[in-house]
Amino acid sequence: MHYEGMIIRPPSEANSILLQVTLGCSHNKCTFCGTYREKRFNIKKDDVIFSDIEFARAHCRRQNRLFLCDGDALILPMKRLVPILERIRDRLPWVERVGVYANTKSIRMKTDEELALLHNLGLKIAYMGLESGDNKVLEAIRKGADADKMIAMGKKLKKAGIKVSVTVLLGLGGRKGSLDHARETGRVLTAMDPDFVGALSLMLIPGTELHDQYVKGDFQLLGPDEMLTELGAMISATNLTDGLFHANHASNYLPIRAHLPRDKEKTLELISRALDGKVALKPEYMRAL
């Protein structure tokens, strides 16, 4: 495979074929994220991509899922993306699902008919970084979209039959904005009604604007109990039709895997017990991005 730079994929794509079709992220302005700072966004050449598909045909026959890297492969124009998906279907017929990161800009650029076509060609899941449903937080982190746009684009994906997995970031509102961040995020998740929610806990990365704000004292990082309190408030405000709410990322203090709405009360009780010291939390040295 012709990988360039660091490769990032969702935790649920750990066993997937990783096909790098773009370099970096088309937005690359979020204040908390340092993943693609060293990469200038670019689309890789078809001959390189198709060569990697042939490599996967020869060496990845036990992997039935494929993830298109890097940060926002859905930004590819249809004239580039359709042939890639067609080649995957033709040369890797055992692949049952293709996944991709997506942001509001890349989703908005595709019509309903185009998204439906991509779904029919194998694009079955898209991962959206909501981060927060609080517009004040979204503006502060330079996300490039407000809550209404997030809701509309999530619904647009679902209308095309593409499953939606949404990432939210605990602690992103800081200490003063914690409960607003939690409640507004729950409100937006309810409106989007995604198939999956992944809650990560904020870990500051040196070299990012948010880390600089923390060093200057302009941003206060939440402690473990504050993170759990925020998570409880977020789950309380989230009403999904039928979705999985995960907070079992390596960054989290308390692993949670809940099927909402069925497990809502049981999950809130677990968080309450953890806050009372009856359930052990992950020690700081074991947390990771």
Rank of each mutant, 00 (worst) to 15 (best):
M150E: 12
M150V: 12
M150S: 13
I151W: 03
I151R: 09
I151M: 04
I151P: 10
I151D: 01
A152V: 09
A152M: 13
A152P: 04
M153R: 09
G154Y: 03
G154F: 05
G154L: 04
K155M: 08
K155Y: 06
K155F: 07
K155S: 09
K156M: 04
K156H: 09
K156Y: 07
L157R: 00
L157T: 01
L157A: 01
K158L: 08
K158Q: 15
K159A: 12
K159N: 12
A160P: 10
I162K: 01
I162Q: 05
I162E: 01
K163P: 01
K163L: 13
V164P: 04
V164T: 10
V164D: 01
V164I: 10
V164R: 05
S165K: 06
V166T: 14
T167V: 15
T167F: 15
V168G: 02
L170V: 05
L170G: 13
L170W: 01
L170F: 00
G171A: 07
L172Q: 03
L172M: 08
R175N: 06
R175G: 02
K176E: 14
K176V: 11
S178W: 00
L179I: 14
L179E: 06
D180T: 12
D180R: 14
A182G: 06
A182Q: 04
R183K: 14
E184M: 14
E184W: 05
T185E: 01
R187T: 14
R187G: 11
V188Q: 00
V188L: 06
V188C: 04
V188M: 03
L189G: 04
L189D: 02
L189H: 07
T190Q: 12
T190R: 12
T190F: 14
T190M: 12
T190S: 15
A191D: 15
A191E: 15
A191K: 15
M192N: 08
M192V: 15
M192I: 15
M192S: 02
M192E: 04
D193I: 09
D193Q: 06
D193K: 08
P194G: 10
P194N: 05
D195R: 00
F196P: 00
F196D: 01
V197H: 02
V197E: 01
G198F: 09
G198I: 05
G198V: 11
A199F: 07
A199G: 04
L200F: 15
L200W: 08
L200H: 14
S201C: 14
S201D: 02
L202P: 05
L202V: 06
M203V: 02
M203D: 00
M203C: 00
L204H: 05
L204E: 00
I205S: 04
I205Q: 11
I205P: 04
I205F: 10
P206T: 11
P206K: 11
P206R: 06
G207S: 11
G207W: 11
G207L: 13
T208V: 13
T208F: 15
E209G: 02
E209A: 13
H211L: 07
H211T: 00
D212H: 08
Q213H: 13
Q213T: 04
Q213E: 14
Y214H: 13
Y214V: 06
G217L: 12
G217H: 08
G217D: 07
F219K: 03
F219C: 07
Q220K: 15
Q220W: 07
L222K: 03
L222S: 03
L222I: 13
G223F: 10
P224E: 07
P224Q: 08
D225I: 06
D225Y: 10
D225H: 15
E226M: 07
E226S: 01
M227R: 09
M227V: 13
M227L: 13
